[in-house]
Design a protein around this nucleic acid. Structure first.
Lengths: 234, 234
DNA sequence: CCAAAAGTGTTTATACTACACCCATGA
DNA sequence: TCATGGGTGTAGTATAAACACTTTTGG
């Protein structure tokens, strides 16, 4: 403490933008804030950085606290640092966005936080600058998903191609040509066809697929182009 | 201060990874740290976040302090938060990377900091986790420059196409086919040919170009693909 | 046997690559 | 006049878009 005298110490928080996909819409997990200020208003799940943990650890801790989930896709998004963003006390907040399998979540309990899933298109107003965080997270999700195969994180282990297409269409709020979409998808070599079929969506039924985990990891950094004209969505 | 009692306040710093291009190599502006700990070791330029400023403001302040430049390309990169990254006291640091016109800089004075430009390929070891920051910044620079026209920020207002190509080759440490490179570049519509020629590189001379500022701003978000097979460089 | 979704195929346009040649000029 | 880098052209290939048809099966 000898050399950094006179510098300001500041509260550091993490806030998590948690995305899920229910088969129809892209959704956001929000909580009713349990303490002042802004108690009982809708908010992102968050928490303060402790002296003994890194930000990644803090984000994982916060995420687990709400969802019970570990080893989840979690990416540092941006630091928000407006001087008055928290009216109570100057706080900089590091936003993380998470992609989780919404069905994994449903088995967990988090009534403590009065958590609810909202479609992105009809979410309530959030406290502080959390709306900005969500906006940026959505933009980053579209950006990254247009280039890299990350949306699989939103799906259960087994999924169908129509299921996948619904998800992409939900994320980009548009429609894709299913023939071209299917071809591109299969040409990535990421999918392994299973024997069973999902008959919930049609009489013919759609084949289940699983991810080729090994190729999936390798191709995380590859540019894929599953989304035509991605610039349009930024 | 009523509701956030018991939380840890932490030092927040910004560090700037400052890139420049001298016509040959991609370079990094480093300083000799002027205070303890690690005094006189090579370091990124940085500073602590003040209570009255945002992180963007702090980064711009730090950058101006060293280079005298304002209105510079500056982008928040990542927060580094290892608990012991600064042995003196727990500090989280927000890394920013900056792209500046190295010739603009040369007219400035910053002997106070014993600043020097180093080629990325032969920089000294840096203090703390600054080497990690540089690595990530270089990766992000390659990533982003492969998709968006940001490298122009490294050039003076007037530049030639061979000049541009040298820069891209410096950033990616590889060679491009100049015919294809030129065509792609011109097809973006970003360049406006000037009358004069630069004869320093050849007897024939290469035409000067300027950026079409308006189109440049519009196309900042567009996907350009000036770099073939960009995945190879990530 | 028919409606409705799943799956496969084909043609066409576009973009990228790999290559070769001409141009301008100072020495 | 020739060596050197600058600038333009073209043919072949790969990729993506736009389109149509067949398959399956529960009702």
């Amino acid at each position: 403490m000898k050399h950094y005298l006179g510098q300001t110490r500041i509260l550091v928080a993490v806030d998590c933008i948690i995305f899920g996909f229910d088969g129809q819409d892209l959704k956001l997990l929000l909580i009713k804030r349990g303490f002042e200020p802004e108690k009982d208003k809708w908010s992102l799940m968050g928490g303060f950085l402790k002296g003994s943990e890194t930000l990644d650890q803090a984000a994982n801790r916060v995420l687990k606290q709400l969802t019970g989930l570990e080893d989840v896709y979690l990416e540092q998004l941006h630091v928000f640092s407006d001087v008055t963003r928290d009216p109570e006390e100057r706080t900089v907040s590091v936003a993380y966005f998470a992609l989780i399998d919404i069905h994994q979540y449903e088995t967990q309990l988090s009534e403590d936080y009065h958590a609810e899933w909202f479609p992105l298109t009809s979410k309530p107003r959030l406290i502080f600058d959390h709306d900005d965080m969500v906006r940026m997270a959505q933009k980053q999700l579209r950006y990254k998903a247009a280039l890299h195969p990350i949306l699989f994180e939103l799906l259960p282990q087994r999924f169908t191609i129509p299921h996948l297409q619904n998800m992409y269409e939900g994320v980009y709020e548009t429609n894709f040509d299913s023939r071209n979409f299917t071809r591109k998808l299969l040409s990535t070599g990421l999918l392994v066809r299973q024997n069973g079929k999902d008959k919930s969506g049609s009489k013919k039924g759609a084949f289940y697929y699983k991810l080729d985990k090994r190729k999936y990891k390798v191709k995380q950094d590859a540019f894929l182009n599953l989304v035509p004209k991605p610039d349009k969505f930024l």
